[in-house]
Computed example of a mutant assay.
Amino acid sequence: MKICIYGAGAIGGYVGVMLQRAGVDVSLIARGAHLEAIHKHGLTLHVGDEVLNAKIPASKDPRDFGPQDYVIIGLKSYQAWESAYDMEPLLGPNTAVVTAQNGVPWWYFYGLDHHTNHRLKSVDPDNRQWEVIGPERVIGCTVYPATEIESPGVIKHVYGDQFGFGEPNRTKSERLTKLYDAFAASKMKPRLFDDIRDDIWVKLWGNLSFNPISALTHATLDIVATDPGTRALSKNMMLEAKAIGDRLGVNFRVDVERRIDGAAKVGPHRTSMLQDVQKERPLEIDALVTAVQEMGQIVGVATPYIDAVLALVQQMGRVKDLYPTFPDAVDDVAEEVPTALAS
């Protein structure tokens, strides 16, 4: 089995090391100082008290590896869109593409009973990923481990080892089973979902609310989830999202209060968006929040709380020059969505 990790950062590097230890033929797409360190010293992973070092073939050029059985995308959504054409050398006739990303995926409406094959402009403007990668290649994935790059070539595993997988067409395919087996053999904890969208929404609930609120306030997750004001705001954003999900046939296996309580138990964790603000890295706003706003318009659900928080975090991102918008497309979506006052 040949698997290329496209974006061997914190999560991608962790997955790459663990899969290689299970005997998978792994390659990495990386860049910059991280790539140089991998070439010189291998990829080092700290898991608890254990230090693992893996010599994994790595390059910035996908042409060095050719067609794969699986490509696991470990990039943020805007990076994945930018890189879609570059992935083509990795895509053979039967290559599966695993979207190991947060937020609403570009393929969300593929084969769905509601708004079948609708294209989401906020995450895939000009249909680039839909046409270059193709939704028929996709295996959906939800990522629960927390990892971070301590220094170039060195990754620290903080907590968690669970991954959710599912076919967008809700079948249990051979390629899905083989991927599950590879992750299980690597001592990560995969779980198969009849509809991976259900798990995407459970995770999205937290990402769409906790991430922008923490980025705006600099409060850690435990504070956002327990302070009366930010907890209420989070809840209202999540209820708007649930109304959207309900119209799309989503099965929410937990309720809002339980979801927020679960976040509070994580403790003083800095969300990924807060970390990006503090490290002055581009913010992943569109897949986490803008896409939910867009989906609300598609199904006719007003989202005044989401609209307001989105406007604030977008403006903060622009002021700090940390908001990498897609050309024209996001602005088009924003213009079509009613403001909070008009809702």
Rank of each mutant, 00 (worst) to 15 (best):
H41I: 00
M87W: 03
V319E: 15
S122T: 14
I285R: 03
D124G: 05
I133F: 01
I155K: 01
P125K: 00
N207W: 02
W205K: 10
F163W: 13
N117A: 05
T230P: 05
G229L: 11
A243V: 03
G134H: 12
L274I: 12
T339N: 04
V123Q: 01
L28F: 03
P62G: 02
W205L: 14
S77I: 03
P282T: 10
L19Y: 02
G111V: 06
G48N: 11
H118C: 09
Q79V: 07
W201A: 06
D227T: 11
I260L: 07
I213R: 07
E280P: 00
P304T: 12
A22C: 12
A342M: 13
T226V: 04
V24L: 02
K178T: 14
E284A: 08
A84K: 07
E240R: 06
S186R: 05
L322Y: 09
G153C: 04
G111M: 02
G140H: 11
A146C: 12
R137S: 07
M238P: 14
V330L: 01
L274Q: 13
T303Y: 00
G300A: 09
K55L: 10
A37Q: 10
D64A: 14
D194Q: 13
A219L: 14
Q314F: 15
F193T: 05
L179V: 04
P67I: 10
A33I: 01
E284C: 10
E257K: 11
Y305G: 03
E335L: 13
T171M: 03
P152F: 00
V292C: 13
P67L: 00
Q79N: 13
Q162H: 15
M238Q: 14
T325W: 06
G42K: 09
L248C: 10
I149E: 12
H115C: 10
N211F: 06
Y180T: 02
A100R: 06
V319I: 15
D286W: 13
A33M: 08
G32W: 09
D332T: 13
E174W: 01
Y70D: 11
V289M: 06
D49F: 05
P168F: 01
L283C: 07
V202P: 00
E150W: 00
K265V: 08
N236C: 06
Y14K: 05
T171N: 13
A232S: 15
K235R: 15
W130T: 15
W81Q: 10
R119W: 05
F65G: 07
T147S: 14
T44W: 01
T177K: 11
I38D: 00
G32S: 11
L19F: 06
L179Y: 00
G66W: 04
D331I: 12
A287Q: 04
A22I: 12
F65Y: 09
G92H: 05
R270T: 08
L288P: 06
D246Q: 11
Y14D: 07
V254M: 07
A291E: 09
H46W: 09
A146R: 07
R259D: 11
D227Y: 14
H115Q: 14
L239A: 12
P145R: 01
L248H: 06
K60T: 11
G23N: 09
V71F: 00
R170A: 04
G164T: 06
K156I: 08
E82Q: 15
G42W: 09
W106F: 12
P282G: 07
G153K: 00
I11H: 11
I29G: 03
T226I: 02
M316Y: 11
W107N: 04
